[in-house]
Nucleic acid binder design. Structure first.
Length: 192
DNA sequence: GTTTGGATTACT
DNA sequence: GTAATCCAAACA
């Protein structure tokens, strides 16, 4: 199943399915090791629950669109819009294992250690050069500035589900997904 | 027009 | 522990 189909399904399945995939952006790439799912309806932590502009975004954009916003006045956070017959939602990209373009990531981040380059939602957008100008762009289709690739050899490995972090509502849902044992995640999974 | 609350990060 | 720093939303 290609990613375009994945993004037409529910956000939780999409968030889990992206773990182990490669994200390519310009000369840089990395393996997705952490994501979170947000449901457009019924999820009190999702922007669509309290921001009319987020609901308008879902209406106006197709599956695979980039929802990029400024958080805490400082950091751009990137989501993939999922949208299909069964509903809509977002997958927040939270961490990557750097692969190609590490020199450029180091330059943009001002950090040396590979683990400091993309180990958080704000960090990875800086490392890849994603910002508000990319809001509304697409992760799928011809001419995309960024896209996902399946990794040869199965990639995914073991995926762990955990509670979402950094939110104050609906904190109990296990909608954060991590590549088991990865050294490149933002916050390690809590005990089950 | 003013106030408030964040899906964070880095530094003390 | 907490400062940094911006915008959309809510309120007046």
């Amino acid at each position: 199943m290609g990613f375009e189909d994945l993004f037409r399904g529910d956000p939780v399945t999409a968030a889990r399915g992206l773990i182990g995939a490669r994200l390519v952006c310009g000369a840089c790439s990395g393996i997705v090791v952490e994501t979170e799912a947000y449901a457009a309806v019924g999820d009190e932590a999702a922007h669509t629950f309290f921001k009319p502009s987020a609901r308008a975004f879902v209406e106006r954009h197709a599956a695979g669109a980039a929802y990029v916003y400024l958080n805490y006045g400082m950091y751009w956070l990137a989501n993939v819009l999922t949208k299909g017959p069964e509903g809509a939602g977002f997958v927040l990209l939270r961490a990557l294992e750097p692969e190609r373009g590490v020199a450029a990531m180091r330059r943009r981040r001002g950090r040396e250690r590979e683990r400091d380059l993309c180990s958080g939602p704000g960090k990875l957008t800086i490392a890849l050069g994603i910002d508000g100008a990319d809001h509304g762009a697409s992760f799928v289709g011809r001419g995309a500035r960024f896209w996902f690739e399946e990794v040869c050899g199965g990639g995914a490995g073991e995926v762990v589900a955990d509670r979402r972090v950094g939110i104050t509502r609906a904190t109990e849902l296990p909608w954060r997904f991590l590549a088991a044992g990865s050294q490149h995640v933002s916050v390690r999974a809590g005990r089950a």
